[in-house]
Write a protein that binds this DNA or RNA. Structure first.
Ligand SMILES: [Zn+2]
Ligand SMILES: [Zn+2]
Ligand SMILES: [Zn+2]
Ligand SMILES: [Zn+2]
Lengths: 160, 160
DNA sequence: AAATGTTATGTAATAATATAACAATATGCA
DNA sequence: TGCATATTGTTATATTATTACATAACATTT
């Protein structure tokens, strides 16, 4: 498996998910070290929970999962860990689902874009800059700070 | 004023807003007649409230506004009216704000795309299909049902 | 007009998502 | 060590959205 090479559509494909999780967790550790920010226990736990699936998880899903092994995990604890992961680009918020996914290409520069399958509920994160909306915006003098691009529909597998 | 001709960026421009509201309300009435659906009092009231500004309004903003002239307006009343307007394409939900805007080009076929100014909080709705993400999705066999494209940043006016 | 089916609204309670405010603890450094 | 800062823990609350059920309005048939 070559996670780095072609993991755009990983969520919609058969793959070694254990490997997928490991690579991304290691990458997160490396990035945090480089940036001199701390991937603490709580933050790592939340990231691991997000990494466990390609389906977006609500904050309270994360909370309930975490509470299976820990005690007295409350909303602020989860939201703070999620905020950290978002700031570091290690996770993304899916606005149309009020839910969160781990970033599939940590460190990417261009805005993330998501394909969300309504049937299997998996989310694929595209990493190529395929958003001329952005060009259009700039043409009219609009200064882009953040782009939310979430396309929902049916993945190739679920269409069959 | 020619609302129909070039109202993509209306929200960011000086314009006769009274006219802007009137044109869109009339258009909504016509469309509902054609479709044989009912633009009832409550639905019209909610649409008028959304039309009163180019800033997205939360459901509870709508509720509070409506409660100034009506009595005992409760969340389900507002959400049901909003659902109707969304179904008929007379309003859109801004996912990244948990808020709603009136549609600026009712009847449009392509997916709506929004530019959201972080400073003046106005939202412009683009009506051209400028989203190759959609092409990309189809290329990989993803069947699009709905696109959420919300670009936030600074409008030309607010940059100065 | 009366009965019926359908659509829309009203009402009460609650679920789901997110944050504020403050206390305690851990970490890194002088 | 002692101090400053970052992180986590705790309690309460704010915000957004839905469920469930009752009533009213409207349309169609008898
Ligand atoms: Zn990413
Ligand atoms: Zn699928
Ligand atoms: Zn529209
Ligand atoms: Zn602005």
């Amino acid at each position: 498996m070559h996670v780095k090479q072609h993991n755009n559509l990983l969520a919609f494909s058969e793959h070694n998910h254990h490997q997928c999780e490991k690579v991304l967790l290691d990458r997160a550790k490396t990035l945090c070290d480089q940036r001199e920010v701390r991937l603490t226990l709580r933050r790592r736990q939340v990231l691991e929970i997000l990494l466990s699936t390609h389906q977006p998880m609500g904050a309270y899903d994360v909370l309930n999962t975490l509470n299976k092994t820990e005690q007295n995990i409350t909303p602020p604890i989860v939201y703070r860990a999620l905020d950290f992961l978002l700031e570091q680009g290690l996770a993304h918020r899916i606005e149309s689902e009020n839910a969160f996914v781990p970033c599939m290409h940590p460190g990417h520069q261009c805005e993330a874009q998501f394909l969300i399958c309504s049937n299997c509920h998996c989310v694929a994160e595209l990493d190529s800059a395929i958003s001329p909306v952005l060009d259009e915006a700039q043409k009219i003098g609009f200064e882009i700070r953040h782009a939310v691009i979430e396309i929902s529909g049916l993945c190739a597998t679920c269409r069959q």
